[in-house]
Amino acid sequence: MAGRLQTGIDVLDRKLDGGLPPGCTVAYTAEPASQSELLLYQLTAARGTLYLSTERSDEDVRHSIDRSSATVGSPTIRHVTGQDPIEDAHRLISALPDGANLIIDTMDVLERTDVEGFRRFFSDLKTQMLETGSIAVLHCLESDRTPPNRSTTLHMADAVFDLETTVGATEIENYLTIPKFRAGGAPTERIKLELAEEVAIDTSRDIA
């Protein structure tokens, strides 16, 4: 579809009619023990990327990206630190160039802050994405202790990508569903993914 920005992940771009619209914010939910970060790393190959890490050090993230077998880019990696993670993230995002990727890994730290402050942050984030024609992918981990602002993230995001990982007796299966996509045209079926060296459709059995 004309005007969309490719994610750099072929299976997603095909399913999304060419990619994501400029200005789109995506909440990407996954279990902590999954290989969900592989998708984030591969997103960096499509265009210039600002990668904000709220938990791991920037050196740790850089090492993981560099040793990945997938096609990756050379993102600018910053560790969100300080007493006010919302303010620190806002400062870094305000310098985002036009037509870039923004990855926040993970959102959990920001989602545990003041409710009103988080809503203002997310509103400013969406404005920044629209003004720069950029794409934001927000990594949201699922756990028994859901951050208090997670519902705000899912509601305000333009799209929700949900990665489900099941561990069987002989194999690990990964399924991506897109329950929300305000741009329209989202696939209605689960996409079975192989998360090994790169993100690809798993054609072993259930072809999506």
Rank of each mutant, 00 (worst) to 15 (best):
T146P: 10
A46G: 08
A30Y: 02
D66E: 15
R120S: 11
T25A: 15
S69A: 15
M107I: 12
L138V: 10
G23S: 08
G184N: 05
D108Q: 12
N174C: 12
T7K: 00
S94I: 03
T152D: 10
S57H: 14
S69N: 12
C24N: 06
Q128F: 01
R14V: 07
S151C: 00
L52A: 10
T49M: 04
D158I: 00
G117L: 10
T44G: 10
D60I: 11
E164A: 03
L195C: 10
T44W: 07
R112S: 13
T165F: 00
E173A: 10
Y28Q: 08
R190F: 00
Q35G: 02
Q35P: 00
P97K: 08
E197M: 06
P75G: 04
P147R: 10
Q6E: 14
G48L: 06
T177E: 04
R145G: 04
L138A: 12
I207N: 01
R91L: 12
S53P: 06
D124C: 04
S204V: 04
D162A: 07
Q83D: 14
P97M: 05
P21N: 02
E197N: 13
V11L: 09
L52P: 09
L195V: 02
T7E: 01
A33W: 05
A186W: 01
C24A: 10
E111Y: 06
K180S: 00
D202C: 07
R150G: 02
E189L: 04
K126A: 05
H155A: 02
V137T: 15
Y41R: 05
E87H: 05
A46M: 07
E59V: 14
A157L: 01
R78E: 15
V61I: 15
V72W: 02
A33R: 11
T44V: 09
I135T: 14
Q128E: 15
I201V: 15
F122Q: 08
R119A: 11
L125D: 04
F118V: 10
N174A: 13
E131S: 15
T29P: 04
Q128V: 12
V115L: 14
L176D: 04
L176I: 05
L130S: 13
A46C: 08
P21D: 03
N149H: 07
I93Q: 04
A183R: 01
T81E: 14
V109R: 14
L141S: 10
D13S: 02
E31M: 08
E194D: 11
S53K: 06
H79C: 12
V115I: 14
R120C: 02
L92T: 10
R62L: 14
L40M: 14
I77T: 06
R120H: 08
I135W: 02
A27P: 01
S204L: 07
E116T: 13
G19W: 00
E116P: 00
